[in-house]
């Protein structure tokens, strides 16, 4: 059974206006998204800014109100009922944020930051709590003395590890990682990515990995969903997306990844311009009247593409 199943998820934000501040329109940030993640896998959610990938992640963890649709986590429907009714499930889902500088409270010591989820969900004595926090610090590769320091005393990579320590404190099953490395330098990025893969194996974690960096997504994800304007344009195994992209938008994204071989740059530029031309010319065919992608259709067992009704 899938660990997380998202069915026809919609998140709409109202636009208010007029004299009475009534709802005049809706922003359809997420407009009918379906996906499921098997335990132990890494699912990549890719898209440009404004495509709704972050909103989807936040809706799953309950930071955004869900307009309609179902979010099934081990059979519990998180979209129904109030926040309280899912308290036990909530602790199984944790989040790693993009910016390690603003996601840690600067006034708190690391010990308190990491212990906060423990204090919320588990009743531990001070001593037990301390032992747990020290274990966690060791797990993320930081020294146990570090727990008395404040966030500003750490480098970006170390802060992201503290964020991860906080996220894994309650032994969650699913971690939503929203651009966890995009604020970091390449060498630090490598550090955090390696580490995320390590603890995934160790703790049997499942990741929902939200990113716009296709190079990283290719490196770490098993399955990938590509979002455009709140909808999916393509979904499939990592291989399907990168070696056999079908939708014009996916093709364009894949061709925009810079290559590290300067000898290939001419051919890449040609390919990229071709992809852009195709995108501009064929967008009538691949998108409906409102410029939105069509519903997904399977083209193989693992690969779904948003193709128009015919052809």
């Amino acid at each position: 059974m899938a660990l997380l199943e998202v069915k026809d998820l919609k998140v709409h934000f109202p636009i208010r206006g007029g004299i009475f501040n009534t709802v005049v329109d809706q922003v359809k940030a997420v407009d009918g998204v379906n996906f499921s993640i098997e335990p132990g896998q890494t699912y990549g959610l890719v898209g440009e800014s404004g495509s709704g990938k972050t909103t989807t992640g936040r809706a799953v963890i309950g930071l955004n109100k869900i307009t309609s649709g179902d979010v099934l986590f081990e059979g519990h429907n998180l979209a129904k009922g109030g926040r309280k009714s899912h308290l036990n499930v909530r602790k199984d889902i944790q989040m790693i944020f993009q910016d390690p500088y603003s996601s840690l409270n600067p006034k708190k010591r690391v010990a308190d930051i990491v212990a906060e989820p423990l204090r919320n969900f588990e009743k531990l004595t001070k001593k037990e709590e301390r032992v747990r926090v020290e274990e966690l610090m060791e797990l993320v590769g930081l020294s146990t003395e570090a727990i008395f320091k404040y966030p500003h005393e750490f480098s970006g990579g170390q802060r992201q590890r503290i964020g991860i320590a906080r996220a894994i404190a309650l032994k969650p099953k699913l971690i939503i990682a929203d651009e966890p490395v995009s604020a970091l330098d390449v060498s630090v990025q490598a550090q955090v990515l390696n580490f995320m893969q390590e603890i995934q194996k160790e703790l049997g974690l499942t990741y929902l990995f939200i990113s716009h960096d296709l190079g990283i997504v290719r490196h770490i994800c098993d399955h990938i969903g590509i979002m455009y304007k709140g909808r999916y344009v393509e979904q499939g195994a990592s291989e399907d997306i990168f070696t056999n992209p079908q939708h014009i938008y996916t093709k364009r994204l894949v061709s925009a990844i810079p290559d590290l071989d300067p000898n290939r740059r001419e051919s890449l530029t040609v390919k990229r311009q071709q992809a852009k031309k195709d995108f501009d010319e064929l967008s009538d065919k691949f998108f409906d009247e409102e410029g939105l992608p069509y519903p997904l259709k399977p083209i193989s067992d693992s690969h779904l593409v948003a193709l128009p009704e015919k052809g």
Binding site: S187, Q191, N194, Q197, I216, R218, H219
Partner: peptide, 14 residues
């Protein structure tokens, strides 16, 4: 330390 398209799921150099 950059992810390589040829070998995925491997460790990156740190």
């Amino acid at each position: 330390s950059l992810p390589n398209s040829a070998e995925t799921k491997t460790k990156l150099h740190v």
